[in-house]
């Protein structure tokens, strides 16, 4: 089936697969940092930067738009931390503020730019829901480079992530540079977001962060296995969602990827080996039967 696709569609498929895997890995870090909402805030916060990058370039220039997205996502992160530390507002509220304000600003800028001559041909709208079909071979190289970076960063410092996520106080007591870990974490999160929004869109990007990680949690009790599984789920969701979206003209990729991820989540919720609902019920049933048999034998 894959071979029946046009060469461009094959590239697109490959790139969303890589993207899904990378965001699955980083999503695991965000999950244990209890930062699922942060990825949502940052991806929404990237939108104004994309538009500004487009205006500065005067045409669709992907690297410049990615740089703009990164700058505005980081500004959003900085604002969340600033609001949290210098007011009585809690972190989740701060994220809610940043998310909606940046998204509103992005849509406003987008509307203005779309009225400019040549603006509405730029495909800026595709950054909202994602349009993987608009990607070309060069984008795939960018994504492969990104995924490789994320992979190397997580594997080389695997034990540091584990320590930092589980017990940050003890980690700093051991001399693990907390600031450096914070910066590296934010860097990989923003990296995955800015490269992913072209394919998945700012609104749904967070789903690709959160859903593979929670799905993986149902299958394993090991942090390493959870990361590997989350990468697998993310990659599978990215690829299958893209595959379905190529069947129709102009179908957005993001929603299909998210639905594919949700299907994987439901399957994990039910059949997950470690925390799945069905497996848990089965275990309880067996235990009950065993207990009943034992009391029965004891009575006779």
């Amino acid at each position: 089936m894959i071979f029946a696709l046009s060469p461009n569609a094959q590239w697109v498929l490959l790139s969303t697969l890589i993207l899904g895997a990378a965001s699955g890995i980083v999503g695991c870090l965000a999950y244990w940092k209890r930062h699922s909402l942060l990825s949502d805030a940052l991806s929404h916060a990237a939108l104004p930067g994309v538009v500004v990058g487009f205006v500065l370039a005067g045409a669709k220039n992907v690297p410049l738009m990615i740089a703009g997205a990164a700058a505005s996502a980081l500004l959003g992160a900085w604002l969340v931390v600033g609001i949290r530390d210098h007011s009585r507002v809690k972190e989740d509220t701060a994220m809610g503020i940043v998310l909606s304000v940046f998204f509103g600003l992005g849509i406003m800028l987008l509307t203005i730019v779309n009225r400019l001559p040549g603006g509405n041909q730029a495909g800026l709208d595709s950054f909202i829901f994602g349009q993987a079909a608009s990607m070309v071979r060069k984008d795939v190289y960018t994504m492969a480079g990104l995924a490789l970076t994320v992979l190397i960063v997580t594997i080389v410092s695997f034990k540091e992530w584990k320590l930092w996520l589980f017990d940050p106080l003890f980690a700093r007591g051991l001399g693990l540079p907390g600031r450096l870990m914070d910066a590296a974490y934010l860097a990989v999160v923003v990296l995955v977001i800015v490269i992913g929004i072209q394919a998945v869109g700012v609104i749904l990007m967070a789903a690709l962060f959160i859903i593979p990680a929670v799905s993986a949690r149902y299958w394993t009790h090991s942090f390493g296995a959870m990361i590997a599984l989350s990468a697998l789920f993310g990659g599978a969701a990215g690829a299958s969602g893209t595959l379905v979206s190529t069947m129709g003209e102009g179908w957005p990729t993001g929603p299909f990827i998210v639905i594919a991820a949700a299907v994987l989540f439901l399957a994990s919720l039910a059949f997950g080996w470690r925390k799945g609902v069905l497996v848990g019920a089965l275990q309880r049933y067996i235990r009950k039967r065993r207990m009943r048999r034992r009391t029965f034998h004891g009575a006779s």
Partner: peptide, 8 residues
């Protein structure tokens, strides 16, 4: 101070 639900 830590989350004992962490997979370890």
């Amino acid at each position: 101070t830590v989350d004992w639900d962490f997979p370890a």
